[in-house]
């Protein structure tokens, strides 16, 4: 029997499949489609201290083999997530969930982590450091090792839950950023967030997206994501949640060979709402085809 179990900072998952933040809401939409308890876990919609409506529409554009989004972290705010969304989720999901936290200042990240710390349902915190830093000319926290370090330290001080830092790929070299997170005490690294991209509408001759640019995701970014997971695995000795363009069981295995302990699946859920169950179903056959008995054994196997 194929062994799909993996462990993230002491938390054993039945399998490495985790729907990625922003593509799975707070879970219950998908619970109407299939039993989401078959998933390893999932990462909920990026949540901030204050409620946010997000960006004006159009927020979505298509690319060859991918898409661009500029949703702008629309979410009901951390308090409502804890008091309303998570109790609603508890009715259909009996596993622990990953809390994806965003922020625009170090204090904001810390406050959200402190609030999440008390929530039994949360297995680990995933810090989205791709948000603009309002105290630093709106440069993303995640493009600067000092920014990543400050946010990670503040989060670690605010919670005893494992803290995973989700890195932005929009940097010249991902390695010093991952190293800064590790030095600041991160328990793991999540990568990659979306690449900055853009499309122009030939009819209007203007950017498709109201915000002009947005986050590029989907199968098109898989090789970039895989390369970065590989680099980070070499550089830091922390568990990695790999993501970016994963759409099949073969992609999952490839990500794990590059160094991922678990794998998040994002945009694929939007075009095939049953993407995760399909991948999970495929996984044992793919493992058998490539002579893999236990997924644990292949993590970082390509190095």
């Amino acid at each position: 029997m194929a062994d799909l179990k993996v462990t993230l900072s002491g938390w054993e998952l039945d399998n490495p499949l985790i729907p990625a933040s922003g593509t799975f809401g707070y879970g219950y939409e998908f619970a109407e489609l299939y039993d989401i308890n078959m998933l390893g876990s999932f990462s909920f919609k990026g949540t901030t201290r204050e409620p946010r409506f997000g960006n004006p529409t159009p927020r979505i554009a298509e690319t060859p083999s991918g898409m661009i989004n500029a949703v702008g972290m629309q979410n009901p705010g951390i308090d409502k997530v804890i008091s309303e969304e998570l109790p609603k989720l508890a009715r259909c999901f009996h596993k622990k969930v990953i809390a994806n936290i965003g922020g625009f200042s170090v204090e904001e990240y810390a406050e959200c982590c402190a609030k999440i710390d008390k929530v039994e349902q949360v297995g680990l915190i995933e810090l989205n450091v791709s948000c603009p830093n309002v105290h630093n000319g709106c440069m993303s926290f995640g493009t600067d090792p000092l920014g990543v370090s400050a946010v990670t330290k503040a989060a670690k001080a605010a919670t005893s839950k494992p803290v995973y830092v989700k890195l932005s790929p929009n940097v010249t070299d991902i390695v010093p950023i991952a190293a800064a997170a590790a030095e600041a005490g991160a328990d793991g690294i999540s990568l990659i967030n979306t690449l900055l991209g853009m499309r122009i509408d030939l009819r209007t001759k203007k950017p498709v997206i109201a915000n002009k640019m947005g986050g590029f995701s989907g199968s098109a970014i898989f090789p970039v994501a895989l390369r970065m997971v590989y680099q980070v695995y070499e550089a830091v000795k922390l568990p990695i949640i790999g993501m970016g363009g994963v759409t099949s069981a073969c992609d999952v295995v490839e990500m794990m060979l590059a160094g991922a302990t678990a794998v998040e699946i994002g945009s694929a859920n939007l075009v095939d709402p049953w993407a995760c169950p399909h991948i999970l179903e495929e996984l044992p056959a793919v493992m058998e085809r490539y002579g893999i008995e236990s997924l644990k054994d292949i993590i970082g196997g390509a190095h």
């Binding site: 922003g22 809401g25 939409e29 989004n69 949703v71 709402p273």
Partner: peptide, 8 residues
Amino acid sequence: FGACMGCS
């Protein structure tokens, strides 16, 4: 189908 907040 309500998952991405792309159409709010």
